[in-house]
Design a protein around this nucleic acid. Structure first.
Lengths: 223, 223, 223, 223
DNA sequence: TATGAATGAGAGTTCATTCAT
DNA sequence: AATGAATGAACTCTCATTCAT
């Protein structure tokens, strides 16, 4: 479930996979607690290995962070899929948002990517795996008349970004207040409300927005 | 109008106060455009003075940023005061939120403090000057039956934080979408809605929340 | 004479020019003795300043090395100009080659650039300043019937490269043997010898050759 | 023919000698193409074995390079021997030089050792196997009156070093120009020319020269 | 008082070599 | 005997802050 990307035809490594796991675990922890600006040395130390080891497993800090975040995105995608299985379109959508926020509210690094849109690669994940079921959830809810027609998928995406901001600020003191704001936001998305100003973002605009900002991590980006 | 907080009994010096203004102007611009991670060298260069001069006027980068942000907070306070002059409690409150967001949506550094709650000092500003009329606005609106009773001033504060997150992401591509989400959020704060989960933050909690996170700027905080 | 590039309209820096000189002196020494792979930390230490200081004056190691080598190229150009003043075309040419080798034979870093053709920028120097009088020297000697017609300027350039190889090997033990090989090479370049195999390089080919190899220094080149 | 120097009384082991061959083959290729700064990991990967295996067979990167270069030196020795079989002393000598350069012109690593005189060990090879017939070739040519008397074997050695410099620079663009310079150099070595400045190196000096420079490879020499 | 040069700790990354499996 | 993961010192470059001029 938590196992990592066995990307290519690599047969599997021996017990050195243990270190990879140690590193991923450390990265999960460190990046979640201290954000993505945490040092690779810190991660390595937390994992109990040398920095060089980190670089054996991951090309650079960015790759390690991506690996860790990919896992979360995968989990979120799974949740989105599961939400589609709910026969109640609205409940499915809301349930997904909550499950996504459950993850985001305890993961500072995750919030940072979502809020800062660091780089293409993560976005790829977001789009390829998550975007699809996410869009499906929204459109299904709209088709079912549970969500107003003039709302876009990007509205829901930005909704979680907003809740991230709340979670960011309140993680240490009131880690569940985001639920309050979710509750505040949802009614406005149901049909029947007053018309909304400032058109919602198209998917393309959302992508553009997330692409626009600081793509650098480790020197100058994916390199 | 443009003169800055000569907090204590310092009489004011010669035309070297001009440098202070130059620095503040540069800092306003640079921090607004590039965020607080901009270099003090950059600010000094933009101001046309040496870095040393910056350090003569401000203890460290943090202090300069604070000075600049204090101005904005002062402006926001003024807007809050003005909003209290509106006889319509709800319109006043909403008008204030919009004016605050007008400032925040074009000021990346400002958004960063608000979203990250860098340090005590800024908060002081927030509380001492802004908080009071802000609270008054909210309470007046509640007294007038325009805002539901179980909503706190912190809810409105976090509301702007959330919109900051939106503005952050869309500044380059759709700089006014935050209005859409403001419109989405406001109805829920009016009386008559369903009860809200997860108690709103008290003022103390809000303060605490903003205190909790990354106090470091320049090494490890105010030093 | 040894003063450095006052490139632009910079009025002149105060006594911090002293450190620049210290750095250049140290770089001259260190690069000449140990070659270009010497550490910037080493240069800084030798100069008695911190690394940061080095980076204040020079964007990167490459720039510092270039600055030092530019000086030498300038000196070589001056020698070439002086050689053109000699009314004896052949003596002028040979004198220039000897003076160039006098510099190269005691400067390992210089030899490395000449032999390895590190990067465009140095080449620019070589071409813009040195190439012109060098070509003039050669062509004048050819016009005077002192150099065979089928010899190109590149032949003389490569001739010094070859002597660099000798100097490289014998610097510590027999620092003047290169003169022996110069004496060995020169007769062949005079008119009347047997035809030479393998066409001489054109100027373009020479440039191409020097461009071809390892352009990286400090990560990935001039960046 | 392809088997390698089993120096001492080691009987020879099983088919794990195959790995040695794989490594040598890979090293031949990699060092020839990319020079001696190529990574041992690269060599191992090219060989299809682990780095550890490389370290089982060779004490360090240096040893592997030496082994590979020993082969080339052996080949060169063979060519020298063959050249001695030519009844024409001059033709034999020149033929040898050409055959040596044929090897050197396509082998960057080889040129690097010859030009940089990395360490004792290689030199041993050079002296023990190559030096002897080389000296014989030269002396025979001198005895035959084909080479001027004041020329030493070291002159011919340095001659090839010089051509290496040319080859180094022109490998990618004009891989045969070295022949031009060989042709340029040879006439000067025949009897009857003007006396040469700067005494030629003695064999001892040549050895000393090659010993003098950068003995470090892998930290600080053979370790 | 203003300047801007100097500092140096720290970040990301590489690679020869060692050693557990 | 073979593997290839682990190590960690070394290198280049950045930037907040100090201090000599």
């Amino acid at each position: 479930m938590t196992s990592t990307s066995e990307t290519s035809a690599r047969p599997l490594r021996r017990d050195a996979a243990r270190n990879r796991e140690l590193l991923l675990a450390a990265a999960r922890d460190v990046f979640a607690r201290r954000g993505l600006e945490a040092t690779l040395d810190d991660v390595a130390r937390e994992a109990g290995v040398g920095v060089g080891t980190a670089y054996r497993h991951f090309a650079n800090k960015h790759e390690l962070a991506s690996a860790v975040l990919d896992e979360v995105f995968a989990t979120m995608s799974a949740h989105a899929d599961a939400a589609l299985a709910d026969e109640d379109a609205w409940r499915g959508l809301v349930g997904f948002l909550e499950s996504a926020m459950d993850l985001q509210s305890v993961n500072r690094g995750l919030r940072e990517v979502l809020m800062s849109s660091t780089d293409p690669r993560n976005l790829q994940q977001l789009q390829d795996r998550l975007m699809e079921p996410f869009v499906a959830l929204v459109e299904r809810a709209q088709a079912a008349g549970e969500v107003r027609a003039d709302v876009t998928m990007a509205d829901f995406a930005l909704l979680t970004v907003m809740l991230c901001a709340v979670a960011d600020l309140t993680e240490g003191t009131a880690p569940t207040v985001w639920r309050r704001f979710l509750a505040l936001l949802l009614p406005g998305l149901r049909p029947g409300g007053p018309s909304l100003p400032s058109d919602g973002l198209t998917a393309a605009q959302l992508t553009a927005a997330t692409f626009t900002r600081c793509q650098r991590m480790s020197g100058g980006g994916p390199a």
